[in-house]
């Protein structure tokens, strides 16, 4: 166990990003092909949801900028702490998914709503009235109203 968990090469000074694709028009393979075309030595790993890319921060940033153009409203990017295949976070060693996986699984269900939002806001400015959390005292019956109801009942 200890050997298997020993720290891997540190990839010092690199960043790793997840690139999720949730698109009716582009599949992960197509995205991967595009990434290889422009990768310039960036490490690319294909996954079921898209890609993981690892490299110097500026190079990764440039790659992401290009990749997003493939399908702007259906590509989502997120930082990852670990480089791909790190034994400390590898499913084969853990026996189960790393905890972050479930969080992604949860958010991937709402990506279609986000895509819709991105498409809608890309072309025009959408005015939003309010999209906040529900406050604790929201939607409660005011006391005056309650008294009124009671009085009416008594009549």
């Amino acid at each position: 166990m200890t050997n298997k968990m020993a720290p891997p090469p540190l990839y010092s000074g690199t960043v790793t990003k997840y690139v999720f694709i949730d698109s009716p028009n582009v599949n992960p393979q197509t995205l991967a092909i595009r990434a290889y075309e422009i990768s310039k030595g960036i490490m690319i790993k294909e996954t079921c949801f898209g890609l993981q890319v690892t490299g110097k921060p500026d190079e990764v940033k440039e790659l992401i900028r290009e990749l997003r153009k493939v399908d702007p409203a259906h590509i989502f990017v997120k930082d990852r702490g670990f480089p791909p295949g790190d034994p400390r976070r590898c499913r084969a060693n853990l026996g189960g998914a790393r905890p972050g996986y479930y969080g992604h699984e949860f958010e991937s269900r709402i990506l279609r709503y986000i895509s819709r939002g991105l498409e809608e806001t890309a072309s025009r400015t959408v005015t939003v009235n309010k999209f906040e959390k529900t406050k604790m005292d929201e939607g409660k019956l005011p006391l005056e109203k309650l008294l009124e109801i009671i009085e009416n009942e008594e009549d």
Partner: peptide
Amino acid sequence: LDIKYPSSEEEGIAFVASIKE
């Protein structure tokens, strides 16, 4: 910005627009 997860396309638009703004 205090916000919540969208659960429909309409909310998706509101969610994205709020963050963009």
